[in-house]
Write a protein that binds this DNA or RNA. Structure first.
Lengths: 222, 222
DNA sequence: ATCACTTAATGAACGGCGTTCACAATAATT
DNA sequence: AATTATTGTGAACGCCGTTCATTAAGTGAT
């Protein structure tokens, strides 16, 4: 039943954007009365957080195939490329996950899932960065895998989120967003490498996304 | 009168966060009835956009002192540092300006102000990047000032916005946000330079902000 | 001074939102 | 069959943005 509610919410979200996800509409979709939802969720907030957890799993599914790459460095690069594509193909989800301050989730089970490379995509990414550090790929002064992971993440996040928030503003004469993303990605990684110049030409520009959804290169809902 | 309305809105925004900026509360503050605001603004949206324009001017005021630096490269670095501090000190304003998709502003006057280095901070930044390009500071393959400006902006934006959106989530074991910002800033600039190694130690960690406001290292309103 | 006329401001309402709560319907247990 | 949990409901509350007919106040011409 929780699942039926979340399904309806997901559909609304995918087809009409975040602002359309209202308790009343969700209730309409499953033909219940609005108050009923409160029997299954504390809050609207809790419902949204449940949605976000699904999206986080989606990120994991998008990211994981990159583990198949041969070397740590290739895995690192591939991660970044997959992340970029994920963010650009699902701007609404991306916005909900990473551009909206959500109340910190204090469910201890949720906390455990984080930082675990098996279930958490940040944890997985971090572990690959650590591989690179251990393999001696980075400059001597770069030893903090955490700092590296968070910095690369932030950089890619910057390109994606700025594109989502301001990409529609044509006063800026934007360069193609993927050009910016790849440029920055290479800049970061090459800047960290001890032996630079192992430059792969570009990211494979598009990779399939795991979950199914009405193909939305979604309109960003203002 | 428009100004009185905007003042009230600004106060509400600064003291209680974006979500507290409601037409009814603004009307209360200036002791008018809610409907009156519609005599001076088309929309709530137009009112918010007027607020954003003020903030944009504030960014300009924060950024401009960096023009006093001696060399193009120093100006470039100083810009980035000022921008970082601005974003970290005024998260609510930052969120409103750069993390919320706003309807594109089609006022032609507004459009003209953009891209003009005199009034638009992006334009000013771009002109400094162009200086660096013209001075031959960058690698031979880096000639597109626009791409450079947008990429550096995106990188710094990533650190700031990720901090605002997810910085409260302590499951990530965040490194200090300024460490991340400076790390990435140096990484980007040094990666672009033709002759690397002109590394200034760090940013002067804090610089005064131009406009006055109840000193808010504001709580990020969820 | 009176009238017409523009402008400023209002009160009441509309529809939508999240949320609450007393109550009805249904299912489970004894 | 009677009692007790569990599920679902309708109506309301207070908030929101927005609209509109109506009043109040100022202005210029006659």
């Amino acid at each position: 039943m929780r699942e039926r509610i979340l399904d309806a919410a997901r559909n609304l979200f995918a087809s009409e954007g975040y602002e359309a996800v209202t308790l009343r509409k969700v209730a309409d979709c499953i033909e219940y009365c609005p108050a009923t939802i409160y029997k299954y969720f504390e809050d609207k907030d809790e419902m949204v957080r449940a949605l976000v957890e699904d999206d986080i799993a989606m990120v994991m599914a998008t990211i994981r195939p990159s583990m198949a790459e041969q070397t740590p460095l290739e895995r690192l690069r591939s991660f970044g490329c997959a992340y970029i594509e994920m963010g650009l193909e699902r701007p609404n989800h991306y916005r909900l996950m990473f551009m909206t301050p959500l109340l910190p989730v204090d469910d201890p089970l949720f906390r455990k899932k984080r930082a675990d490379p098996q279930t958490d995509s940040y944890g997985l990414f971090l572990s690959v960065v650590q591989e690179c550090v251990d393999a001696g790929l980075f400059r001597a002064d770069i030893t903090d895998a955490c700092l590296v992971a968070q910095t690369i993440w932030a950089g890619l996040h910057g390109v994606i989120s700025l594109h989502i928030a301001c990409g529609g503003n044509d006063t800026y004469d934007w360069r193609p967003v993927r050009d910016r993303a790849i440029f920055l990605h290479d800049l970061m990684i090459n800047g960290m490498l001890r032996v630079p110049g192992i430059v792969l030409p570009t990211c494979p520009s598009s990779r399939p996304v795991a979950t199914t959804e009405p193909s939305l290169t979604e309109a960003v809902t203002p």
